[in-house]
């Protein structure tokens, strides 16, 4: 049982699934993870602004050229900065972002174990 669970978790993290299941095509998947820079809190996918429409085209062209998802993200990050992607990648800057909640969870678990007598 535990092994199966572990396998599932491992697969989950290695494939790095996006939660939104309505993503049908690659373009939709990528543009949903891009911030529309001139809109308030909208993704490129959700926006109909000039900028977002062009951005969707660029992403589509890149996919047609045979570019991988990562290459497209890198290209756009190079042009617009990290700000454009909604999912911050794990690096020196975001290490604490991803780990603080997990550290706190572990810490909380320790506190509870100390409080509770196992008898």
């Amino acid at each position: 049982m535990f092994k199966i669970l572990k396998l599932i978790l491992l697969l989950y993290f290695s494939f790095n699934f996006s939660y939104a299941n309505e993503i049908n095509t690659k373009v939709d998947k990528i543009t949903k993870n891009l911030r529309c820079l001139i809109c308030q809190g909208q993704s490129v996918y959700d926006s109909q602004s000039d900028f977002a429409i062009s951005m969707k085209l660029v992403v589509k062209n890149k996919i047609d050229e045979g570019k991988e998802d990562e290459e497209i993200y890198d290209y756009l990050k190079n042009k617009y900065g990290e700000w454009i992607v909604y999912e911050p990648e794990l690096n020196r800057n975001t290490f604490l972002l991803w780990s603080i909640p997990l550290i706190l969870f572990a810490f909380g678990g320790l506190l509870i174990i100390r409080k509770v007598s196992i008898k």
Binding site: N33, E82, W83, I84, L97
Partner: peptide, 29 residues
Amino acid sequence: VGTIYPIFLEVLNGSKISVGPPFYHNLLI
């Protein structure tokens, strides 16, 4: 952390990041 981290990061080293739905889904689900 997801809400205020971008503010902290920008103040401390000037980089701007977005923390959007994928972050919350990956950690919470």
